[in-house]
Structures are given as C-alpha cells and as structure tokens.
C-alpha cells in the first residue's frame, strides 16, 4: 500500500465505513509498520476528525513522537480544552498558546476540516473553542461564514450553539449578519425561524413576516446603518433575543462613521457639529431616530441639499424633517 492510497484509505474508511473501522484499520497498519503508518497522518490532506478519532491509539501506543508539529500541537490543544480543570492563573492558562502564528493556522485547520463532523459532545466542545480562539484572539474574519453555517447545523441537530453564537458576535464584525440573513432564503422553516430569532433585534423583523420580507428588511437596515453600527456586547447569555449591534444615531445624523467598539463618532468634530449635537441630545429618542433617518435619506438622495440642510439652525432642521416625514 503506497502512501497516497493509505491516506485515501484512512479518509475513505472514516467517511464511508465509520469511526470504528478507521480505528481498526489504523491499528492493523501500525502493527505492520508503526512509523510509516503514523507519518501518513502528517499529510496535508488528512482532516482533523481523523486525527481526533485516533488520538487514544496514538497516545497509548506512544506514537505521538512520529507526528508532525501540526498534529502534535492540535492534540495538545485538544487535551488542553478537554482537561477538567483550567486554573485562572495566566502561567498555566496559555501553556500551549505561546506561538500565535503557528497556533492560528492549526486552529483554522482544526475548525475548517473538522466542523462537518459530529463525533461527540467533547468533539463539539473542541470545535467551539477553536472558533472562539480564532474570532476573539486572532480576529479571524474568514471563518465567520463557516461559524454561521455550523450554528445552523447545530440548531437543526438540537446541539448547543450557545458558545458559537457568542464567538460569532465577539468577532465584532457586522458582516457576519449578512451570512445569518442568507438563511432567510432557506427552504427549511427551522433555518428561517432560527435566522429570525437571531436578527429579531432589527426593527420590523419578526416571525409574522414572510422570510423574503424579512430578508429585504435586513438588507435595507444593513445598508442604511452599517457605518454607524457599534457592538454592545449582548449574546444569548444575556437574553433570548440579544441586541449585539446598535446604531449610533448621533453619528448617523451627522453622516460620520462610528467606532465599532464604542459607538463614538470617529474623527474630530467641528464647532458647528458640536453645537448641533448639543441640541440633538436634548430631543426625545423618537425624534432622534426620525432626524437621523431623515438625514441619512437626504444625504443618500441629494447630497447638495443635505449639505445645505445640515448648515441650517437645528430647530429648522428638525422642523423640515418633521414636515417631510409627516411626523
């Protein structure tokens, strides 16, 4: 059996004949030639689930020494995640996480090649932790679509998506909502319900609308508010319908982007802008929403007119906005 056919066989056995057959086939191969068999696991085409399933055999037979750095580190990460106690002291907490770049690529490999498997609760925990390390420590945005897909698979299979959802929101990347909203187009009502639950904080999105209407509402809201969104820290730990992002209404009113983390207006404000904001903060929240929405729409449709409008005294701005929005 040549190396490439063995690799193919390991992967094929797992996917076609199941996990137990894989373990038996591996043991047989090791008994013939342990070093060569184990080194076959070092090939780039091997997926994380295969390594995970063989970890007990590798450990009990002292075969880990034949693994490459990727696999050794991946198994260390697994052991670290599954270890019963994690003391809070930093000295022990990050023992295996001293090599950021190395770990980044290995965590990505574990998540991306392993996410489609559902081997056990422990396995799902390992995948969840890989996702949270990638989104919070490495701020990895290329995996967000995969995390969203995994959340929907978990929901359908009645498995926990609680920590995955937190990982996704903690990425502090509003575009992740676009991937969620794509599930409004799913033919599966469970997907649509879950999607609605996650995006219900957006005005007018609710269970009573059809999914197409909700998708349109999302796209309109996203387009109108993206530069002004800020992350407020809510997750499913906080509420059934968390509000992960809020709109910085003052930034939207002035047409200035907001800081994604704080909601503060980016850049320095002119004296005129300061004065306008002082007046703006004194009106009711309902009026603020109306004025910010009016300002955005005017800016979008007629920039010249908006530039004239924003220079008029605040009370005149408000009066015109009220008149034109029939408030």
């Amino acid at each position: 059996m040549g190396p490439s056919s063995s690799i193919q066989s390991f992967e094929e056995i797992r996917t076609k004949y199941g996990n137990e057959k894989l373990k038996k086939a591996f043991v047989k191969a090791v008994e013939r030639n342990e070093k060569q068999s184990v080194q076959l696991l070092n090939h780039s085409s091997i997926e994380f689930a295969t390594l995970y399933l063989l970890r007990d055999e590798l450990s009990s037979r002292s075969l880990i020494r034949y693994l490459n750095e990727r696999n050794k580190t991946a198994l260390s990460i697994v052991n670290d995640i599954l270890s019963e106690r994690r003391t809070p002291e930093p000295e022990t907490m990050y023992a295996i996480c001293d090599e950021p770049q190395h770990l980044h690529s290995i965590l990505s490999w574990m998540l991306l090649t392993g996410k489609n498997e559902n081997l056990s609760m422990d396995y799902r925990l390992v995948i969840d932790r890989c996702a949270s390390l990638l989104t919070t420590i490495y701020r990895e945005q290329t995996i967000l679509e995969d995390v969203v897909d995994l959340m929907f698979v978990r929901n359908k299979n009645n498995h926990s998506y609680h920590y995955l959802t937190w990982s996704l929101f903690e990425a502090r990347e509003p575009s992740a909502m676009v991937y969620i909203a794509e599930y409004f187009r799913s033919a599966d009502s469970e997907d649509v319900d879950f999607c609605t639950q996650l995006l219900r904080f957006i005005p007018e999105i609710n269970e009573d609308n059809n999914s197409e209407a909700n998708h349109t509402l999302f796209l309109r809201w996203y387009e109108a508010n993206l530069p002004y969104l800020f992350y407020n820290g809510e997750s499913l730990d906080t509420a059934k319908h968390p509000v992960p992002y809020e709109v910085a209404l003052d930034a939207k009113y002035l047409g200035r982007p907001a800081n994604l983390n704080t909601g503060g207006i980016l850049g320095l404000l002119t004296d005129t802008e300061e004065q306008l904001l002082n007046a703006y903060y004194k009106i009711s929240n309902k009026e603020q929403i109306m004025l910010s929405t009016y300002s955005f729409r005017l800016r979008k449709h007629d920039l010249t007119r908006w530039q004239q409008w924003i220079q008029t005294p605040f009370h005149e701005q408000l009066a015109l906005a009220k008149e034109e929005t029939h408030d």
Binding site: D80, R86, R129, W166, S167, G233, S235, D237, T238
Partner: peptide, 29 residues
C-alpha cells in the same frame, strides 16, 4: 429585557466580561 426607567429589587442584570478567556466562554458574563 430592556433598559428600564428604574432598577428594582428582583431585577436580573448582566455583568459582561468583555475580555473573557475564550477557552472558558461560560464566564463571558
């Protein structure tokens, strides 16, 4: 779940831990 006018005994509040260790997200708050 919303920001109330007043906080009253028996309310449930949330303490957010924004820099939680991602290895223990159960302590996210």
């Amino acid at each position: 779940h919303r920001i109330p006018e007043d906080y009253l005994p028996g309310d449930i509040r949330y303490f957010k831990n924004p820099d939680v260790n991602p290895m223990t997200p159960q302590w996210q708050g």
